[in-house]
Each structure stands twice: as C-alpha cells, then as structure tokens.
Write a protein that binds this DNA or RNA. Structure first.
Lengths: 343, 343
DNA sequence: TTGTAGGCGTTATCAG
DNA sequence: CTGATAACGCCTACAA
C-alpha cells in the first residue's frame, strides 16, 4: 500500500520542474524538448504516476464527469439506457456518476444536491416531475441538464431527448383500429408525467379521428412504482363491456400488467389483443410473442451523451434542443382481429 | 449562471473567518459559539453554499466515492445488482461511479485506470478474469477491491461476495436426477471464470454421486457475450442421444438459449426439462414458467457495499473476507420426469 | 471561541 | 524550451 506518486516525485526523479511534467501529461499545452519528454515519460511509467483527478477538477470550472439520474435500474428500459450512456460517455473520456430516484422526488432532490457538490458539468436525467426549483438552481449554476425519455413542461430551456410519445401511441391505436377493434383499453403512466400525458393524447387523437367516442373508464393511469398495473387490468376487464384490446403504455408496469393478463383466463390475442410499450428482450419469448412499440434506446442514449459532451466543451449553440426520435411499431402475434365483432 | 459561492464568500458575508465556516460545515471538528453558528448557517443557505467535493478530496487520501465495475447492464442480473448497490451506497452517503467492461479485459483495464485517477476508496467489481496485474496494482495503492459474483483464483487476499455456485448447480442437477433424468445437458459460462468452473464442478459432483458417467459432450462452455448460447443448444440436441434435460448455468446466455429451445419443436417440459440460472422478472411470464436458481441479488449488493463502506472507514479487520450466500432453487413448470425413460 | 497560515496536486502565467 | 509561483477551495494545526 504505497502512497502514489505525485507530479513532484516525477519532476524530482527526472530532474526537471513540475511544469515540464505537466506539459508532458497534457500533450500540447506547451513546448517540451523531445529528449526531455522521453526522459519524463520514462519516469512517469516507471513510477506509475497518474494525475489526481481531484486536483485537476479543483482548478477547472467543472469535472469531466456527468451525472446520470435514472428512475430505476430494475426497469430494463432504464438499464439499457444506462448501459449505452456509460458506453458512449466512455468513448468520449467521460465518467458517469449513477444515481437513482426510485421515482421519489425526495431522493431526486438529494441527487441534485450531490451533483452540485461534485460539480459535474452535465446531467442526464429522467425527472420525476417535481423539484422544479432544484433543477432550476442546477441550471443557474451552469450545469447542462438533459432530460431524457420525459420532460417537465414548466422547465423550458432544457435539452430534451425522447421519442414521439403521442405519435407512438397513435400508431399502436391505429393498428388495433385497423384490425377492427372498437373498444380499446389504455394503461398509461401517471398524467403528471409528460410521457403519460403525451401517450394518452395520441390515443385520444387516434380514437377521435376514427370518430369513436371514448369511454373514459378505458383509460387507466397507473403510477410507475408498485404493483398497480394488474389492478388496472382487472378494472378494465370487469367493465360491463370490456375492451377487446389493450395498450400498455406504462413501460414500468408492463410486467405486472402481463402477469394479470396471464392469470386471467382470456386467450391472447383471441379474446384480447395486446400491445406494449418497450421492446424488452423477453417480449418475443413469451407466448404469444408480443406486438410492441420499440424505443430506439441506443439513439436516446447517444443523443443525450452528445448533448452532454457538446455543451461541456461549449461546442454547442446556446439554444436548448428538443430531439425527438421515432419509435418503431413491431407487430408480432399478440394482436389480431377481435373474435366477435361488437354488435 | 452565477458562479457558486465558496467558503470565503460565506466567511466574508458572515463576518467570520473561513475556519469557522469550515467547522460549522463539519459538525464537531471544533468549537463554535451557538450564536456564531446560527449566523453562519443563515448565510450558508442564503448563499446556497455547498463545499466543493474536489477540494475536499484533494486533501483526504481518498474520496467518498466507490467504483462499480460491471460486465454489462443489459443483463438483468447486473442491472439489479447495480440498482441495489447504488441504493445501499446512497444510504451511506457514498457515490457510485459506474463503469462497464462488456466482458472485455481491455475495457476493464481502462476502467481500473480511471478508478485510480479518481482515487476512489473502494471498488466493487465483476472481474473479467484478466488484468491480474492491474487489479494487483489497484490494491497496492490501498484501494479496497471487492469482487462480486465472480472471483479470480490467482488473486487471493481480495474480498469476495458470491453465491455457492457449485452447490447451486448441484441442487439443480439433483432435482433433475430425482425426476428420473439420466442425460442432462449443461451450458456454462467460460471455464476461465470462477462461476463457470464452480458450476460445472457442482454438476459433475452430482452426476458422479449418482454414479452416472458423464458424456463430456453434454457440457458446453459458452462465452458471456455474443449469441452462442443457441449454438450450444443445437449441439446438444443433435447428439446421437440428446439430453432429456438442460441446465443453463450461463446467466448471460439464458435468453439466446431459450430462444433456440423455443424454435426447436421440442415441448417443454415433456421433451426437454429446463432449469436456468437467475430469476429474471420474466421467467414466470413465459410458457411454461421456468424452474430457476434464484440468486439473492439484494444480499450480494448489501454485503458488497457493506464491505466497501466498512473498509473505507477502516472499520474492518484486515483479513479479506469471503462471503458466500445460498441461492434458492425454485421449481416451476419447466421441469418434469422424462417422457420415455432411456432404455 | 476564533483567526492565520500552510498544504493537498494540478494547471497556467510569466519570466528566464 | 524550462522553471518559479500563484491560484483552485477546503481542512487543520497552531496561535491568539
């Protein structure tokens, strides 16, 4: 457990000043004689010298670190997002501090606090919807905040990377309408979230375009955490005239929803057609394989990191950007025409 | 985008010296008059002062940050592990820098390098198996390394938290043997990993205890990355006398393996019984619901963080610990007696 | 109880 | 091309 070498150790050992060593480390920050450089380099890796990140960060405004604030790594969507963000960031020499909110604004506030102390340069986050003031403060401090997947309406002037939630829901709905379904159930995330609202909006639009009047009971908004997805299904199925198709637009609740569907004695797709948001690795492993809305997670991650890194270097225009990418509808075997057309 | 307040700003504003402010921040590092403190506190949150992490870290040996080096967040096992580690760490006021290796020793080396520069106090990692020297260096530098899930035999003297891999495989095998299976296929991770070796060892032990001689072709070691799981299944099924049961002990390849099984025209469990390692959320959603070995991920995370935090504070005995927890076999519907007993 | 001064490891600015 | 030296923001003896 030896103490690690500092720049001074290297300087002494190589018989130069620390300034020279510093220049050697940051290639191009100043002239160094080839011969001197060679000697220094030799000493550097003989001693295994590595500049201390903390010392560097102390003088620059902010660190080469970005904060990643996600709701919940248990959700494959976020897990994959994290995987790609870490990957893309690494390719740019950026480190990632990971924080999770579990959808709890209180934890989110704590996370923001942490990120300020660590003076990260950028933050990529899936906001809970609260903490408007905290986020504002973070931005005032000069931190580049990028919301991914969701956004907060009140917080304009922030970069956003997400899919066209409304359009995606619309496409899924149109697909079912095209198959002949008239009563379609819709399970969405909380309407306090942008994704929840947007997806419901898309659903409504498709329904009204088809000139169907919408039974409000067919829309169920379910929180992200907890096990309420199955309750929502129960509620839908026990309606006087139950839906013949179901769109599960709350990614987090897809699982519990499916569990409930499976427990029901209904056959999919004969008794009930099913479309779910988010193409997890197992959606094609279940029976029947599920028709899904596939979010281009890699793109979401890539754009987020690009923004985070770009703004870090001040390379980007000041204007906040709203990047929206298209999700892809993938038809598999969980959707089919309704067995008996409603009379 | 105001520049954030420093300790000096607070001191000036409150009409005291920076030393006093420092003492107020680190409660108990020195005496402060109640009245003075009140005044300072008032200024502190009026100015929104927050000590800069980098400056703090600069003087202490190491930061309040731990590194988490995982193979691949795409794998639900690691994703859940990450989720719990971040959670447990947060509860202790510890931040987590996340790095992924994608099972690539080269990336792993890079990660270790990063962690040294950031002078993290502890590292929780699922090692690829390589980089023995790098890991050694990290430890020599005084960093507490905790291997979780896997270990490196050559690297003794490191904390390890994992399940009883051998015993788990043994139990799964015994279960199948008890059902009457005699030819059991086994898909494991690479034998260069401790989990791979241990699980195979458990399998062998169970087989030999049952006094069955083992057809070596029934054991398939498959890399973690890539899509070779399905090939392994094909190989097994095309044997002259194919197995009547299959244990998939390579967590990472469970999915592609299952896909291949599903494509085959074999019925589970009638033609082929199935046990897989790792209880993902979807294992009971597929048909039939899978019999699994459930790893107590929460425990793995908890013990890891406890070790990481404990050693950080120097609160632990010097001796490296090997913590092994039991996995749980959960029988569902993918295992049954073989249809026709082999003649 | 409070203040002063030195140092943590780097980078950056100027003289040599 | 190289070398002092002053920051960066905070902690911590040591003095007052």
């Amino acid at each position: 457990m030896r103490k690690s070498a500092t720049i001074r150790d290297v300087a002494r050992e190589a018989g130069v000043s620390i300034a020279v060593v510093s220049r050697v480390m940051n290639d191009g920050s100043g002239p160094v004689a080839a011969q001197t450089r060679a000697r220094v380099v030799e000493v550097i890796d003989r001693l295994g010298y590595r500049p201390r990140a903390a010392a560097r960060e102390l003088q620059h405004q902010s660190s080469t670190t970005i904060g990643l604030v996600l709701a919940d790594l248990t959700n494959p969507f976020f897990a994959r997002l994290a995987d790609r963000v870490v990957w893309d960031a690494r390719a740019r020499g950026i480190h990632v501090v990971l924080l999770t909110t579990q959808e709890d604004p209180h934890l989110e506030a704590e996370s923001i606090e942490t990120l300020i102390e660590r003076s990260v340069g950028s933050v990529i986050a899936t906001p809970t919807g609260g903490n408007v003031d905290k986020w504002t403060e973070l931005i005032k401090l000069g931190v580049n905040v990028i919301f991914v997947d969701r956004e907060i309406d009140k917080l304009t002037g922030i970069d956003v990377v997400a899919i066209h939630n409304d359009r995606s829901a619309e496409i899924a709905t149109d697909h079912l309408l095209g198959l002949g379904h008239r009563r379609i159930g819709f399970i969405s995330g909380p309407l306090s979230t942008s994704t929840g609202r947007d997806r419901v909006a898309g659903f409504r639009r498709a329904m009204s375009r088809a000139e169907l009047d919408l039974d409000e009971r067919l829309i169920q908004a379910v929180p992200f955490r907890g096990d309420l997805g199955s309750d929502a299904v129960s509620a839908l199925l026990s309606l006087p005239t139950p839906p013949t198709a179901l769109i599960v637009a709350n990614t987090a609740q897809v699982r519990s929803t499916l569990r409930r569907v499976k427990q029901s004695s209904l056959a999919v797709p004969d008794d009930l057609s099913l479309v779910v948001f988010d193409d997890n690795p197992w959606t094609e492993l279940v029976s029947p394989p599920l028709s899904v809305i596939r979010q281009p997670i890699d793109m979401l991650a890539l754009h987020s990191v690009e923004l985070a890194a770009g703004r870090l270097k001040g390379a980007l225009t000041e204007r906040p950007r709203h990047i929206r990418v298209d999700a892809e509808f993938i038809q598999r075997l969980s959707t089919a025409p309704p067995k008996k057309t409603p009379r």
